Simulated assay, not measured.
Amino acid sequence: MDDQPLIRAGLASLIRAAPGLDVVAEASDGVEAVALAARTRPDVVLMDIRMPGMSGVTATEHILAAPVRPKPRVLILTTLDLDEYVYTALQAGACGFLLKDTPPERLIAAIATVSAEDVLLAPAVTRRLIETYARRSPGPAATAGLTARENEVLRLVARGLSNGAIAAGLVLSEATVKTHVSRIMAKLGLGSRAQVVVFAYESRLVTPREPR
């Protein structure tokens, strides 16, 4: 979804040429993006952050609020890696973001990855963005419903660790970690791994100064 026809056409051609991927719709603005997502039920939405009419952030909120399952994975496209609009989109449930100068092979790999599983794209970059803007949040949120182990896993997810890395560090199976992450998201009403990271920083469970 991009308001610039040339960029949109280039992305569509690139994706169609990749094995196992296809383009089900193209939108020129946020309003059209929301309507087409509801109609075509895509697995992944590439969303430009700044579009006329309805922004990519608002379009993301509408798409992820729709009562459909499974929900699409939204990848934000941006020109800046430290962008408050991107942070707001991650709060809304986008699973990650990509810079518009991302090499084609990395873009295709990112689409395939988020389509297959819930992961945090570019953990170090995403965490840096969240650290920058989470300082403005109002303060701790309730996590009383989480077990001690779930709080532990939550903090590790917030530091950008994959399920495999968490499993190795806690001496658990990867399947067990995946179950913990799913339960954390369900209990806290979160829809993506990026939202888990945002929540952890905004709740002060993890802070930028906390040693890794």
Rank of each mutant, 00 (worst) to 15 (best):
1 M>W: 09
7 I>Y: 03
7 I>T: 13
13 S>D: 07
16 R>T: 03
16 R>F: 08
23 V>A: 05
23 V>K: 01
29 D>P: 00
31 V>A: 15
32 E>L: 10
35 A>D: 05
38 A>N: 12
39 R>Q: 09
42 P>G: 04
44 V>C: 07
48 D>S: 15
49 I>G: 00
49 I>K: 00
51 M>E: 06
51 M>C: 08
55 S>E: 10
55 S>V: 14
55 S>R: 07
63 I>V: 09
66 A>Q: 08
68 V>K: 01
68 V>H: 01
71 K>R: 14
72 P>M: 04
77 L>V: 14
80 L>K: 04
81 D>I: 15
81 D>K: 10
85 Y>V: 05
88 T>F: 13
88 T>D: 09
88 T>R: 09
89 A>Y: 00
96 G>R: 01
99 L>T: 05
100 K>L: 14
108 I>L: 11
111 I>N: 00
115 S>Q: 13
115 S>K: 08
115 S>Y: 11
117 E>D: 13
118 D>C: 07
119 V>N: 01
120 L>D: 02
120 L>I: 11
122 A>F: 11
126 T>I: 06
130 I>E: 01
131 E>I: 15
132 T>D: 04
134 A>C: 15
134 A>I: 15
135 R>G: 13
137 S>I: 06
139 G>C: 12
141 A>G: 15
141 A>C: 11
145 G>I: 06
147 T>P: 09
154 L>E: 00
154 L>K: 00
156 L>F: 10
157 V>M: 12
160 G>V: 05
163 N>K: 09
167 A>C: 06
175 A>S: 15
176 T>V: 07
179 T>V: 14
180 H>V: 04
186 A>K: 11
186 A>T: 15
186 A>C: 13
188 L>A: 11
188 L>K: 04
192 S>V: 14
194 A>N: 04
195 Q>F: 11
200 A>L: 04
201 Y>F: 09
203 S>E: 01
205 L>M: 12
206 V>W: 02
208 P>L: 13
209 R>W: 10
209 R>T: 13
210 E>R: 09
211 P>E: 10
